[in-house]
């Protein structure tokens, strides 16, 4: 195993992917806890499909992918949030509507401009080779900004996640924090989706939160546990992708799935034991 890791770090592109990927996994895990608890998990999925459309459009226009995708996905995030809050169309169906449309438009653009080729496969399922060194810098800077903002507003984010009505009543501008969460989520998704793929990036947001909620009982420990689980799963996923020559995104998701199953088993066993102790 150490030999594999050593060999991995001898490739600069793999080292870059690992640095960016772990930072993005951290961001996704932090935001994911809030999104899952607020019942907004579908927003992550919707945004990644919008991101796919934006990347396809950027490729067709020969523009730098991140500079097109970031503003489009951020806009979509605000739109999805508004729809979820206004309640005219039920949130989940509105998101399904938008994500399917964006996906369809993206496929149309790709097939009209260059035909179905490896690009579309890479957008869908991710490619570890997709990061240029400029992208790496941007990703590192943005993910550090996401982590810092999350830490600074941690208490408010907890309050808004746990009980939005109370938070509003006691003077927290819940709308602003919801927007902040949506904005940070949009950035994380755009940065992560080219490596993880549009189909798989939302798992990075949802899995670590659900995994740690099997075992942890406090908000802070859920957050910390999610961050650790997420980073570890990413690392494991990439290592096994290197060792087994499997796609990076799928390997990371499978690592997350295994972690989830292990945590769920541990949680179930612990609860059963507590029940028995409580009875005895």
């Amino acid at each position: 195993m150490p030999a594999i890791i050593e060999a991995m770090f001898s490739y600069p592109f793999l080292t870059r992917a690992l640095i960016v990927g772990i930072l993005i996994s951290l961001c996704a895990a932090l935001l994911g806890v809030s999104l899952v608890l607020k019942r907004y998990s579908m927003i992550g999925d919707g945004l990644s499909h919008v991101g796919f459309g934006a990347l396809a459009a950027a490729a067709a226009m020969n523009a730098a992918p991140l500079y097109v995708a970031i503003p489009v996905v951020v806009l979509a995030a605000f739109l999805l949030l508004r729809i979820s809050e206004s309640g005219k169309i039920k949130g989940d169906s509105a998101i399904a509507l938008i994500s399917a449309s964006a996906l369809a438009i993206g496929v149309m653009i790709v097939s009209l401009s260059s035909g179905m080729n490896t690009d579309i496969y890479n957008y869908m399922f991710g490619s570890i080779l997709s990061m240029s060194s400029g992208d790496v810098t941007l990703s590192v800077v943005l993910s550090i900004v996401v982590i810092i903002l999350f830490a600074v507003f941690y208490n408010r984010i907890f309050a808004v996640t746990f009980d939005e009505t109370f938070a509003r009543a006691t003077g927290t501008k819940a709308g602003i924090y919801n927007m902040l969460i949506a904005l940070l989520t949009a950035l994380t998704i755009v940065l992560g989706m080219r490596m993880m793929g549009a189909m798989l990036i939302s798992s990075l947001i949802i899995f670590p939160a659900l995994t740690s909620m099997r075992v942890c009982k406090r908000f802070k420990s859920v957050i910390i546990c999610s961050a650790i689980v997420s980073a570890l799963c990413f690392f494991t996923g990439i290592s096994s992708s290197y060792a087994l020559s499997t796609p990076a995104g799928a390997s990371v998701v499978v690592a997350n799935l295994i972690a989830f199953l292990v945590f769920a088993a541990v949680g179930a066993i612990r609860d059963a034991m507590q029940l028995r102790l409580g009875k005895g």
Binding site: F162, C216, K217, R218, S221, V222
Partner: peptide, 11 residues
Amino acid sequence: FPASVWEVVLS
């Protein structure tokens, strides 16, 4: 919701 009593009260 996973939260301790302390976290809730403090908020």
